[in-house]
Design a protein around this nucleic acid. Structure first.
Length: 574
RNA sequence: CGGCCCGUAGCUCAGAUGGUAGAGCACCUGACUCUUAAUCAGGGAGUCGAGGGUUCGAUCCCCUCCGGGCCGACCA
């Protein structure tokens, strides 16, 4: 009765669960299950000549079954991959009692269940490497049917493609789409590759606050929260830059952090509210050095992942082999629009924007206008890795002024596939200049720019003690992973991308109905007819019709309940 | 935030000028001891995303909402 809101298949599986218990089989045993091998090892290394793998034990999920009377084949999937298993009635049920095969394996086990098997490996007549099972153990019963994906010659049938299911129930996606698991393994490999490089140079991996009193280090809208004990607002970090630079002040040669940052902005194919950035700061370096280092980093990641630097992204071939093209922002605009903006003032730039149909507002200053021009007309054209260098001062408040070019800073962004992948500076270490830049930001903020940076006075104080010349670089791990794994959307490289919460249809608990004097056996039928809350039920005006509907439901579903009178139903509604 | 599209069985998808729904796989019953999208025979399974409106009657038409996708805006 209480199972009425379960699907038929779920009810069958729960019944199987009960039956297993009645047979004295624990469907969720506690004991360690000692495996000796992974499916992948067997598939790679078994050979009939060597006659190896003759006593194996492995565990995994049943992904498919082909039952043929007294012998069966099944697909077992463990963390390394799939392997076929062969189960014969007289092997797993050697005595008179054929219960383990006839009842447990054939009837009570389902696709999705996790079992352990002991046996030996052989090749079938069809040449398929297979584990011949002598003994199997139920390790976990699955009571929710898994989407069934079949495959032949590499072609998937009925693959789950619904993005909502894939992102919301990532666990299902990972079970049935092996290539998804591969993407996330590669994501971790990319991070490991970078970490190896940093550690080999002696740089220190650190952790800095996620909860910050001042959300500094980037121009972005923060998430805000509140600390009760201190009764103060705290922000989820939009960047960790200012903390890492404090550590350079403190005397570390190089520090880095793989950091989750949070930005309270839109979501799309390349933006998620929380995302991962690797930021690194190294003393006594400048942005020229950092460009070479970034090239090395990206190249190493590509080689560690693919063994080569040519990668395919969508329909594009991208070569990550250094050196990468370097072009100043001014030259990039000249190259893409034919307009030389060098030396232009704000009205001049606004004129260029208007001429090229680049949207702009009065609150935008020189730097912002140049930035808009670049974003609209240039950025998407840099498919092959390209360093855009020498950004306007106004939009780079943490960057050192260029050593020789007036009006620009020593900053670069690495573009790949028309998207920003990395961002780096010769870090501004002049505390007085830094204070002035912050104050410029404040003025922009007053002018209406809600992305202007906050002033962090403690950071200024740190710079006043003296920070060595330093270069820092941040690289978007999600976007880099997208490029290196050929994934079109950031959601495909985040295990749990942000989603709107699932709508829960309101449903009152059974007790609430019973309190109203409604017999327990009629609660499920009521809910099934749409009266999922008492409030809805109370809105019913015609008790007679409801009684009729319920009696009809009783009959149709063969519930065998005794009929209801309109008078009885009338009482419920009071 | 705006434009376009989508939501039907556990999964992939059909469907009807508006008369309460189908297929394959999955599931259940049976047959089958080397199959592999196993096969063969039979069967059951659905508040057609939610609510409201029009109608004798809505899964289909209209409105609102919820969820999702793509594009754009925003986000350096």
């Amino acid at each position: 009765m209480s199972n009425m809101n379960l699907s038929e298949q779920e009810q069958i599986r729960r019944a199987s669960l009960d039956e297993l218990r009645k047979l004295g089989i624990n469907p969720y045993p506690a004991a360690e299950y000692k495996t000796t091998v992974f499916a992948h090892d067997i598939m790679d290394n078994y050979s009939p000549e060597k006659n190896n793998f003759q006593d194996v034990c492995l565990a995994g999920r049943i992904m498919g079954r082909r039952i043929m009377g007294n012998a069966s084949f099944a697909e077992l999937m463990d963390s390394s991959g799939r392997i076929q298993i062969y189960i014969r009635r007289d092997d797993v049920s050697p005595g008179e009692d054929k219960m383990m095969y006839n009842t447990v394996f054939k009837r009570l086990l389902d696709i999705g269940d996790i079992i352990g098997v002991k046996g030996h490996v052989f090749k079938t007549q069809m040449g398929e490497t297979t584990v011949h099972v002598d003994e199997f153990t139920i390790l976990s019963k699955s009571i929710r049917p898994l989407p069934i994906v079949k495959e032949k010659d590499g072609v998937l049938f009925d693959a789950v493609t619904d993005p909502e299911m894939r992102y919301r129930q990532r666990y299902v996606d990972l079970i049935i789409n092996p290539q998804v698991r591969d993407v996330f393994r590669k994501r971790t490999q990319i991070i490991q590759s970078m970490r190896e490089l940093f550690n080999s140079k002696g740089y220190l991996e650190v952790e800095t606050p996620v909860l910050q009193p001042i959300p500094g280090g980037a121009a972005a809208k923060p998430f805000i929260t509140h600390h009760n004990a201190l009764d103060m607002p705290l922000y989820l970090r939009v960047a960790n830059e200012l903390y890492l630079k404090r550590l350079i002040v403190g005397g570390f040669e190089g520090v880095y952090e793989f950091a989750k940052d949070f930005r309270n902005e839109g979501m799309d194919r390349t933006h998620n509210p929380e995302f991962t950035v690797m930021e690194i700061y190294i003393a006594y370096k400048d942005y020229n050095w950092m460009m070479v280092f970034t090239e090395e980093l990206v190249k190493k990641a590509a080689l560690d992942l693919h063994g080569k630097t040519e990668i395919i992204y969508g329909d594009k071939l991208i070569n990550l082999n250094p050196p990468y093209k370097r072009i100043s922002m001014t030259d990039a605009i000249l190259e893409n629009t034919g307009i030389d903006i060098s030396g232009m003032d704000e009205p001049g730039l606004r004129g260029v924007c208007d001429k090229l149909d680049v949207p702009n507002t009065a609150s935008m200053g020189k730097g912002k206008l140049i930035d808009e021009l670049f974003s609209a007309k240039c950025e998407h054209n840099y498919i092959q890795p390209t360093f855009i260098i020498d950004y306007p001062t106004e939009t780079s408040p943490l960057t050192k002024m260029h050593r020789s070019k007036p009006g620009v800073t020593e900053r670069f962004e690495l573009m790949i596939n028309g998207k920003e992948i990395a961002n780096a500076y010769s870090e501004l270490n002049d505390p007085i200049d830094q204070m002035e830049r912050f104050q410029d930001q404040l003025r922009l903020s007053e002018k209406g720019d809600d992305e202007a940076m906050f002033i962090d006075l403690d950071f200024i104080r740190a710079l006043e003690y003296g920070m060595p010349p330093t270069s820092g670089m941040g690289i978007g791990i999600d976007r880099l992973t997208m490029i290196l794994t050929n994934q079109p959307s950031i959601q495909d490289v985040l295990l749990f991308p942000q989603m709107k919460p699932e709508k829960k249809s309101a449903s009152d608990h059974e007790e609430k109905y019973i309190e109203k004097g409604i017999p327990a056996e009629w609660v499920d039928p009521l809910k099934k007819l749409g009266f999922t809350t008492l409030t809805k039920l109370m809105e019913v005006e015609k008790a007679g019709k409801l009684a009729n509907d319920l009696n009809g439901f009783n009959k149709k579903n063969k519930l065998g309940l005794s009929g209801l009178s309109p008078e009885a139903v009338e009482k419920w509604l009071k």
